[in-house]
Write a protein that binds this DNA or RNA. Structure first.
Lengths: 133, 133
DNA sequence: CTACTTGCAAAAAATTTGCTGCTAT
DNA sequence: ATAGCAGCAAATTTTTTGCAAGTAG
């Protein structure tokens, strides 16, 4: 539950981080699990869940909370946003951002002390545009 | 699964919409269920799920996809965003928005045809600020 | 009428947890 | 040494679904 005081870099954790970083998609825990078993045949789904949780707690990866029932994870820990296809749910990174005063503005309006934000753009992806046309 | 051609306004659906609109919080399906049983003791959880789904499909309410494992729903169907407290998960509405060109900009960058966006600001709410201080 | 909806119960999907033995530090 | 982790399996939590009977339009 709580993130331990001293994190260890176990084989499993290393591989999870490694694979996620080279993925450039935004897999669910279950998708990661299926992939990881190629390198670590005995890894368990529980371990995948626990590690994705810990890694995002310490900021090495991002937990993406967007549409859909499953959580998704992103090996890219830098500040960026996402576009999602309303039809096929495809998810991609977007590197645009609102101006820096936005968080301040919301802080004043709501009395929350706003630290960051996430944005999800929703639309139709190139593939689905063709399919629809 | 598919939204029917003709929607009926049943008692259950009416009450769900009604209660959700006067709530000003952003309840989960289960929270709605517990509340609704006061007015409709025999309503089932399945009905609550199905109706929240249908109502958001037709745009009468909003399905909020934010942090956390459960989906939340918002009786306010107008375009607005949310602030979430990183400590206690309290969720509030925010009426700020990015400039209208943002969606266009993302459309050009990603080749998605962007229709809308959602923003979630994350920070510490007034209560938790006090508790922490 | 009849397409749509409900309640109920069971199933499925997603995530978390208890435990015991192993391992990174 | 020892706090932290892994694997496994069981339990929980959240959501969906099949079905037979009821109802709005």
């Amino acid at each position: 539950m709580d993130t331990p005081v001293n994190l260890r870099m176990t084989k499993q954790r290393q591989v999870i981080l490694d694979e996620l970083r080279k993925m450039h998609t935004h897999p669910t825990a279950d998708e990661m699990y299926r992939l990881l078993r190629k390198r670590l045949p005995k890894i368990s789904l529980g371990t995948v869940y626990r590690n994705l949780e810990v890694l995002s707690d310490v900021g090495l990866i991002q937990k993406i909370e967007v549409a859909g029932t499953q959580k998704r994870f992103d090996g890219n820990a830098s500040h960026h946003h996402h576009v999602r296809c309303a039809q096929c749910s495809r998810l991609e990174d977007v590197y645009v951002d609102v101006d820096v005063e936005m968080d301040q503005k919301v802080s004043r309006l709501t009395e929350f002390e706003v630290a960051t934000h996430r944005m999800e753009f929703v639309g139709v992806c190139p593939n689905c545009k063709i399919a629809t046309a």
